[in-house]
């Protein structure tokens, strides 16, 4: 295969991944690593480096729009970024010591969880009006735009959310993913933020989390230009396209199909990891 053919193939695959990722809300980054390792036989460390870079591109692009529309809770995001960046540093350090096959197995398990989490119902806004001391001191309570105008909400369980965010950071640094599913779990389930605020704030945080580990990956030589170039440009173009189509698209069936694909990839990653094929 020539370099041009290889680049075109990877670029097209990444475009498709970014497109489906944006349409289904699962993010394009999660399928990049299995695609590169299982389909193209790329070493998992190179694959993680390339995926990490594409994650920064898509999350920053999308975050710009959400922040502008007033969905993201900047204070919650900023505060929890302390947890995710410390986590990302630990995760990237851990990646040095863990065997590649172990990383592949962990990747598969997280992938399975992401596929499962995409089917979870949006939880209703908590009607609980009790005041949370830490959340109040950190001025986290806010309001977000809904069909009925600005609706205010209260934030709770900050320490638990912080802890889950640390785990999200570790996974991001170790696997080169945004770990949006775990971030949403922390905010939506633990801290009781409205679903839309959780997903957009998670998106807002992903760029900073990924940047923390990407710096380490770059200086360690895990980011290859020939590979990262088509992946980053492909995923970015695909996700911009997906966001454009998103308005008015019927995504339910697509989400089931994409989640099933992710589930199959996850099982293959776990199998190959156990069989020592990495």
């Amino acid at each position: 295969m020539t370099t041009l053919e290889f680049t075109a193939l990877i670029g097209f695959g990444s475009l498709l991944a970014g497109f489906l990722g944006a349409l289904t809300g699962l993010g394009g980054g999660v399928v990049i690593v299995p695609m590169l390792t299982l389909l193209f036989g790329v070493d998992i460390r190179y694959a993680i480096g390339a995926a990490l870079v594409s994650v920064i591109a898509t999350s920053s692009g999308a975050a710009a729009a959400y922040v502008r529309d007033g969905y993201s809770n900047i204070r919650v995001g900023m505060f929890l970024e302390i947890a995710t960046t410390i986590g990302a540093l630990s995760g990237a350090a851990l990646a040095l010591y863990l065997r590649v096959s172990i990383i592949a197995i962990i990747f598969g398990v997280v992938l399975l969880y992401s596929a499962y989490a995409s089917f979870r119902k949006e939880s209703d806004v908590s009607k609980d009006e009790r005041v949370d001391r830490i959340a109040t001191w950190l001025r986290m309570d806010s309001a977000y735009p809904t069909a009925n105008g600005l609706t205010s909400y209260h934030v709770r369980n900050v320490p638990l959310g912080f802890l889950i965010m640390y785990v999200a950071g570790v996974l991001s640094g170790l696997l080169g993913i945004g770990s949006g599913a775990v971030k949403v779990l922390a905010m939506d389930q633990a801290m009781k933020l409205p679903f839309k605020v959780s997903t957009t704030t998670s998106n807002f945080m992903i760029g900073v989390t990924a940047a923390a580990s990407a710096g380490i990956y770059l200086s360690r030589g895990y980011i290859d230009p020939g590979l990262a170039m088509p992946v980053m440009l492909g995923v970015l173009a695909g996700s911009l396209l997906g966001a454009r189509v998103l308005a008015g698209a019927q995504v339910k069936t697509l989400r089931i199909v994409f989640s099933s694909v992710i589930g199959i990839l996850a099982i293959e990653m776990i199998y190959n990891g156990i069989a020592g094929k990495f």
């Binding site: 870079v53 920064i56 591109a57 920053s60 990924a210 940047a211 710096g215 770059l218 230009p225």
Partner: peptide, 8 residues
């Protein structure tokens, strides 16, 4: 890519 990492 370095610029991209610098964006966040």
């Amino acid at each position: 890519l370095l610029l991209l990492i610098a964006t966040p």
